[in-house]
Protein backbone atom coordinates (compact mmCIF):
# COMPACT_ATOMS: atom_id res chain seq x y z
CA UNK A 1 0.00 0.00 0.00
CA UNK A 2 1.85 3.02 -1.21
CA UNK A 3 1.30 6.14 0.77
CA UNK A 4 2.47 9.64 0.32
CA UNK A 5 5.27 9.37 2.81
CA UNK A 6 6.57 6.19 1.34
CA UNK A 7 6.09 7.08 -2.27
CA UNK A 8 7.83 10.40 -2.35
CA UNK A 9 9.17 10.95 1.13
CA UNK A 10 12.82 10.70 2.06
CA UNK A 11 12.48 6.98 2.69
CA UNK A 12 11.38 5.80 -0.72
CA UNK A 13 12.92 8.23 -3.10
CA UNK A 14 16.56 8.53 -3.94
CA UNK A 15 16.79 11.55 -1.68
CA UNK A 16 20.38 11.88 -0.57
CA UNK A 17 20.73 12.92 3.02
CA UNK A 18 23.21 15.64 2.39
CA UNK A 19 21.66 16.65 -0.90
CA UNK A 20 19.09 19.26 -1.53
CA UNK A 21 15.94 18.01 0.17
CA UNK A 22 13.72 20.91 -0.84
CA UNK A 23 12.73 19.69 -4.27
CA UNK A 24 11.03 16.33 -3.49
CA UNK A 25 9.77 17.75 -0.18
CA UNK A 26 8.00 20.57 -1.93
CA UNK A 27 6.25 18.24 -4.34
CA UNK A 28 5.16 16.03 -1.43
CA UNK A 29 3.52 18.95 0.26
CA UNK A 30 1.96 20.20 -2.95
CA UNK A 31 0.48 16.76 -3.58
CA UNK A 32 -0.77 16.65 -0.01
CA UNK A 33 -2.40 20.04 -0.36
CA UNK A 34 -4.19 19.07 -3.55
CA UNK A 35 -5.49 15.88 -1.97
CA UNK A 36 -6.57 17.68 1.18
CA UNK A 37 -8.39 20.42 -0.65
CA UNK A 38 -10.29 17.83 -2.67
CA UNK A 39 -12.26 16.96 0.45
CA UNK A 40 -15.24 19.09 1.44
CA UNK A 41 -14.88 18.17 5.12
CA UNK A 42 -11.32 19.48 5.11
CA UNK A 43 -12.24 22.76 3.46
CA UNK A 44 -15.06 23.39 5.94
CA UNK A 45 -13.04 22.41 9.02
CA UNK A 46 -10.07 24.43 7.85
CA UNK A 47 -12.29 27.51 7.57
CA UNK A 48 -13.68 26.86 11.06
CA UNK A 49 -10.20 26.44 12.55
CA UNK A 50 -8.88 29.58 10.85
CA UNK A 51 -11.92 31.58 12.00
CA UNK A 52 -11.57 30.37 15.60
CA UNK A 53 -7.86 31.15 15.70
CA UNK A 54 -8.47 34.57 14.15
CA UNK A 55 -11.20 35.16 16.70
CA UNK A 56 -8.78 34.36 19.51
CA UNK A 57 -6.02 36.53 18.05
CA UNK A 58 -8.23 39.55 17.39
CA UNK A 59 -10.19 39.30 20.66
CA UNK A 60 -9.50 42.90 21.79
CA UNK A 61 -10.68 44.37 18.49
CA UNK A 62 -13.70 42.10 18.26
CA UNK A 63 -14.83 43.03 21.74
CA UNK A 64 -14.24 46.71 20.93
CA UNK A 65 -16.68 46.22 18.06
CA UNK A 66 -19.14 44.55 20.41
CA UNK A 67 -18.75 47.40 22.86
CA UNK A 68 -18.27 45.34 26.02
CA UNK A 69 -15.11 44.00 27.66
CA UNK A 70 -15.01 40.45 29.03
CA UNK A 71 -15.00 41.57 32.64
CA UNK A 72 -17.38 44.52 32.40
CA UNK A 73 -20.58 44.24 34.44
CA UNK A 74 -23.83 45.45 32.89
CA UNK A 75 -26.45 45.69 35.60
CA UNK A 76 -29.02 46.99 33.12
CA UNK A 77 -28.95 43.73 31.17
CA UNK A 78 -30.11 41.59 34.08
CA UNK A 79 -33.37 41.60 35.96
CA UNK A 80 -32.90 41.80 39.74
CA UNK A 81 -36.55 40.74 40.26
CA UNK A 82 -35.96 37.52 38.34
CA UNK A 83 -32.99 36.46 40.43
CA UNK A 84 -30.49 38.19 38.18
CA UNK A 85 -31.61 36.46 34.99
CA UNK A 86 -30.87 38.26 31.71
CA UNK A 87 -33.45 40.76 30.47
CA UNK A 88 -35.17 39.60 27.29
CA UNK A 89 -35.52 36.17 25.73
CA UNK A 90 -32.74 33.79 24.61
CA UNK A 91 -30.39 34.74 27.40
CA UNK A 92 -30.61 38.46 26.72
CA UNK A 93 -29.48 38.40 23.09
CA UNK A 94 -29.82 41.90 21.71
CA UNK A 95 -28.06 44.35 19.41
CA UNK A 96 -26.14 45.46 22.48
CA UNK A 97 -25.15 41.97 23.64
CA UNK A 98 -24.76 39.72 20.60
CA UNK A 99 -24.63 36.45 22.51
CA UNK A 100 -26.62 37.67 25.50
CA UNK A 101 -25.21 38.12 28.98
CA UNK A 102 -24.16 36.07 31.97
CA UNK A 103 -26.83 35.80 34.66
CA UNK A 104 -26.14 37.63 37.96
CA UNK A 105 -23.27 39.73 36.59
CA UNK A 106 -24.51 40.88 33.21
CA UNK A 107 -21.11 40.33 31.66
CA UNK A 108 -21.22 40.24 27.88
CA UNK A 109 -21.17 36.62 26.69
CA UNK A 110 -19.76 37.48 23.26
CA UNK A 111 -16.72 39.10 24.85
CA UNK A 112 -16.28 36.20 27.24
CA UNK A 113 -16.57 33.58 24.52
CA UNK A 114 -14.07 35.45 22.34
CA UNK A 115 -11.61 35.89 25.19
CA UNK A 116 -12.35 32.32 26.31
CA UNK A 117 -11.20 31.12 22.90
CA UNK A 118 -7.85 32.75 23.62
CA UNK A 119 -7.34 30.85 26.86
CA UNK A 120 -8.75 27.54 25.63
CA UNK A 121 -6.85 27.52 22.36
CA UNK A 122 -3.67 28.83 24.00
CA UNK A 123 -3.66 25.98 26.50
CA UNK A 124 -4.52 23.45 23.81
CA UNK A 125 -1.75 24.63 21.48
CA UNK A 126 0.84 25.02 24.22
CA UNK A 127 0.09 21.59 25.65
CA UNK A 128 0.17 20.03 22.19
CA UNK A 129 3.53 21.65 21.45
CA UNK A 130 4.95 20.44 24.74
CA UNK A 131 3.66 16.92 24.19
CA UNK A 132 4.94 16.78 20.61
CA UNK A 133 8.40 18.11 21.44
CA UNK A 134 8.93 15.83 24.44
CA UNK A 135 7.24 12.85 22.78
CA UNK A 136 9.24 13.19 19.56
CA UNK A 137 12.52 13.53 21.40
CA UNK A 138 11.80 10.50 23.56
CA UNK A 139 10.39 8.41 20.73
CA UNK A 140 13.16 9.13 18.28
CA UNK A 141 15.83 8.47 20.90
CA UNK A 142 14.20 5.21 21.99
CA UNK A 143 13.74 3.99 18.43
CA UNK A 144 17.10 5.05 17.06
CA UNK A 145 19.47 4.21 19.87
CA UNK A 146 17.60 1.11 21.04
CA UNK A 147 19.15 -1.01 23.79
CA UNK A 148 19.17 0.45 27.24
CA UNK A 149 17.89 3.87 26.15
CA UNK A 150 14.88 2.18 24.58
CA UNK A 151 14.25 0.02 27.64
CA UNK A 152 14.34 2.95 30.04
CA UNK A 153 12.22 5.23 27.86
CA UNK A 154 9.69 2.51 27.03
CA UNK A 155 9.30 1.64 30.70
CA UNK A 156 8.76 5.31 31.45
CA UNK A 157 6.06 5.45 28.75
CA UNK A 158 4.33 2.38 30.17
CA UNK A 159 4.51 3.83 33.65
CA UNK A 160 3.08 7.19 32.61
CA UNK A 161 0.27 5.46 30.77
CA UNK A 162 -0.62 3.47 33.90
CA UNK A 163 -1.42 6.64 35.77
CA UNK A 164 -5.11 7.47 35.97
CA UNK A 165 -4.55 10.65 33.97
CA UNK A 166 -7.74 12.61 34.64
CA UNK A 167 -7.74 11.82 38.37
CA UNK A 168 -4.10 12.81 38.58
CA UNK A 169 -4.57 16.01 36.64
CA UNK A 170 -7.49 17.00 38.85
CA UNK A 171 -5.50 16.22 41.99
CA UNK A 172 -2.42 18.12 40.86
CA UNK A 173 -4.42 21.12 39.74
CA UNK A 174 -6.30 21.24 43.01
CA UNK A 175 -3.30 21.21 45.34
CA UNK A 176 -1.46 23.94 43.45
CA UNK A 177 -1.83 27.43 44.82
CA UNK A 178 -0.60 30.83 43.65
CA UNK A 179 0.74 29.72 40.30
CA UNK A 180 0.01 30.72 36.74
CA UNK A 181 -2.88 28.36 36.11
CA UNK A 182 -2.57 28.47 32.33
CA UNK A 183 1.05 27.35 32.48
CA UNK A 184 0.38 24.79 35.20
CA UNK A 185 -2.49 23.32 33.23
CA UNK A 186 -0.29 23.10 30.13
CA UNK A 187 2.40 21.30 32.10
CA UNK A 188 0.00 18.91 33.79
CA UNK A 189 -1.79 18.00 30.56
CA UNK A 190 1.56 17.64 28.81
CA UNK A 191 2.89 15.35 31.51
CA UNK A 192 0.36 12.66 30.63
CA UNK A 193 0.22 13.23 26.88
CA UNK A 194 3.77 12.59 25.68
CA UNK A 195 3.85 8.76 25.75
CA UNK A 196 1.24 8.60 22.98
CA UNK A 197 3.40 10.67 20.64
CA UNK A 198 6.54 8.87 21.75
CA UNK A 199 5.06 5.49 20.81
CA UNK A 200 4.07 6.62 17.33
CA UNK A 201 7.47 8.21 16.71
CA UNK A 202 9.35 5.24 18.17
CA UNK A 203 7.58 2.78 15.91
CA UNK A 204 8.19 4.93 12.88
CA UNK A 205 11.86 5.44 13.78
CA UNK A 206 12.38 1.70 14.23
CA UNK A 207 11.26 1.09 10.67
CA UNK A 208 13.43 3.90 9.32
CA UNK A 209 16.58 3.07 11.26
CA UNK A 210 17.72 0.29 8.95
CA UNK A 211 16.88 2.04 5.69
CA UNK A 212 19.77 2.43 3.27
CA UNK A 213 19.75 6.20 3.24
CA UNK A 214 19.99 6.35 7.02
CA UNK A 215 22.76 3.76 7.05
CA UNK A 216 24.51 5.70 4.30
CA UNK A 217 24.40 8.90 6.31
CA UNK A 218 25.78 7.10 9.33
CA UNK A 219 28.56 5.43 7.34
CA UNK A 220 29.44 8.74 5.75
CA UNK A 221 30.33 9.88 9.22
CA UNK A 222 27.33 12.05 10.05
CA UNK A 223 26.85 12.76 13.73
CA UNK A 224 23.84 11.16 15.48
CA UNK A 225 22.28 14.62 15.77
CA UNK A 226 22.60 15.13 12.01
CA UNK A 227 21.22 11.70 11.19
CA UNK A 228 18.29 12.13 13.59
CA UNK A 229 17.29 15.61 12.50
CA UNK A 230 18.01 15.39 8.77
CA UNK A 231 17.37 11.74 7.95
CA UNK A 232 14.99 10.28 10.51
CA UNK A 233 12.89 13.26 11.54
CA UNK A 234 11.59 14.06 8.02
CA UNK A 235 10.51 10.45 7.64
CA UNK A 236 8.69 10.57 10.94
CA UNK A 237 7.04 13.91 10.26
CA UNK A 238 4.08 12.62 8.21
CA UNK A 239 2.40 10.44 10.85
CA UNK A 240 3.54 12.93 13.48
CA UNK A 241 1.69 15.82 11.84
CA UNK A 242 -1.47 13.75 11.61
CA UNK A 243 -1.17 12.60 15.20
CA UNK A 244 -0.49 16.15 16.38
CA UNK A 245 -3.63 17.49 14.71
CA UNK A 246 -5.62 14.73 16.38
CA UNK A 247 -4.11 15.68 19.75
CA UNK A 248 -5.49 19.22 19.68
CA UNK A 249 -9.19 18.30 20.14
CA UNK A 250 -8.24 16.10 23.09
CA UNK A 251 -6.35 18.99 24.66
CA UNK A 252 -9.29 21.36 24.16
CA UNK A 253 -11.61 18.82 25.81
CA UNK A 254 -9.23 18.21 28.70
CA UNK A 255 -8.89 21.92 29.43
CA UNK A 256 -12.67 22.22 29.36
CA UNK A 257 -13.13 19.19 31.60
CA UNK A 258 -10.66 20.46 34.20
CA UNK A 259 -12.16 23.94 34.17
CA UNK A 260 -15.63 22.41 34.30
CA UNK A 261 -14.69 20.64 37.53
CA UNK A 262 -13.46 23.93 38.95
CA UNK A 263 -9.76 23.07 39.06
CA UNK A 264 -8.75 24.69 35.78
CA UNK A 265 -8.87 28.33 34.79
CA UNK A 266 -10.30 30.38 37.63
CA UNK A 267 -12.87 33.17 37.22
CA UNK A 268 -12.90 36.00 36.24
CA UNK A 269 -10.58 34.70 33.48
CA UNK A 270 -12.89 33.13 30.92
CA UNK A 271 -12.19 29.89 29.09
CA UNK A 272 -14.78 27.79 27.31
CA UNK A 273 -14.70 25.14 30.01
CA UNK A 274 -14.95 27.73 32.73
CA UNK A 275 -17.92 29.40 30.97
CA UNK A 276 -19.67 26.04 30.60
CA UNK A 277 -19.04 25.32 34.28
CA UNK A 278 -20.67 28.62 35.23
CA UNK A 279 -23.54 28.13 32.82
CA UNK A 280 -24.29 24.74 34.35
CA UNK A 281 -25.89 26.37 37.37
CA UNK A 282 -28.37 28.11 35.10
CA UNK A 283 -28.88 25.76 32.20
CA UNK A 284 -32.50 25.09 33.07
CA UNK A 285 -33.46 28.74 33.33
CA UNK A 286 -31.04 30.19 30.80
CA UNK A 287 -30.18 27.47 28.28
CA UNK A 288 -28.59 29.90 25.79
CA UNK A 289 -25.79 30.68 28.26
CA UNK A 290 -25.03 26.94 28.29
CA UNK A 291 -25.52 26.30 24.58
CA UNK A 292 -23.36 29.10 23.13
CA UNK A 293 -19.97 28.27 24.74
CA UNK A 294 -20.61 24.54 24.33
CA UNK A 295 -21.29 25.03 20.63
CA UNK A 296 -17.94 26.75 20.22
CA UNK A 297 -16.23 23.95 22.10
CA UNK A 298 -17.89 21.22 20.03
CA UNK A 299 -17.16 23.12 16.80
CA UNK A 300 -13.49 23.45 17.64
CA UNK A 301 -13.14 19.80 18.64
CA UNK A 302 -15.04 18.65 15.56
CA UNK A 303 -13.04 20.79 13.14
CA UNK A 304 -9.69 19.64 14.48
CA UNK A 305 -10.82 16.00 14.49
CA UNK A 306 -11.93 16.14 10.85
CA UNK A 307 -8.70 17.83 9.86
CA UNK A 308 -6.64 15.27 11.75
CA UNK A 309 -8.62 12.38 10.25
CA UNK A 310 -7.92 13.63 6.75
CA UNK A 311 -4.24 14.14 7.48
CA UNK A 312 -3.97 10.68 8.97
CA UNK A 313 -5.56 9.11 5.92
CA UNK A 314 -2.98 10.76 3.72
CA UNK A 315 0.11 10.73 5.89
CA UNK A 316 0.00 7.66 8.09
CA UNK A 317 1.58 4.68 6.33
CA UNK A 318 -0.73 2.33 8.17
CA UNK A 319 -3.84 3.68 6.48
CA UNK A 320 -4.38 3.35 2.79
CA UNK A 321 -5.14 6.78 1.34
CA UNK A 322 -7.25 5.24 -1.40
CA UNK A 323 -9.61 3.70 1.12
CA UNK A 324 -10.78 7.19 1.99
CA UNK A 325 -12.39 8.31 5.19
CA UNK A 326 -11.30 5.75 7.73
Amino acid sequence: MPTLTQATGPGGGPTPVAGNPTEPEASTWRLLRTQLCARASVRVSLVVVVLLVLMALTAPWLTALGGWGPEEFDKSAIDPYLGGMPVGSFGGISTDHWFGVEPLTGRDLFARVVYGARVSLLIAFLATTLVVVVGTAAGIAAGYFGGRVDTVLSRLMDLTMSFPALIFMIAMMSVARDVNRVLLMTAVIGLFGWPGVARVVRGQTLSLRRREYVEAARLAGASPWYVLTRAVLPGVSGPLIAYTTLLVPGMISTEAALSFLGVGVQPPTPSWGQLIAESYQFYETDPMFFIIPTTFLVLAVLAFTLLGDALRDLLDPRTDPRSGRS
Binding site: P249, S253, A256, A257, F260, I276, Y280, T294, L297, V298, V301, L302, T305, L306, D309
Partner: peptide, 11 residues
Protein backbone atom coordinates in the same frame (compact mmCIF):
# COMPACT_ATOMS: atom_id res chain seq x y z
CA UNK B 1 -19.91 9.28 15.08
CA UNK B 2 -17.44 12.08 14.52
CA UNK B 3 -20.02 14.64 15.67
CA UNK B 4 -20.99 12.62 18.72
CA UNK B 5 -17.34 12.06 19.62
CA UNK B 6 -16.88 15.83 19.74
CA UNK B 7 -19.56 16.32 22.38
CA UNK B 8 -18.27 16.40 25.94
CA UNK B 9 -20.14 14.29 28.47
CA UNK B 10 -21.51 17.33 30.33
CA UNK B 11 -23.11 18.58 27.11
Amino acid sequence: AVTAASMPVYF
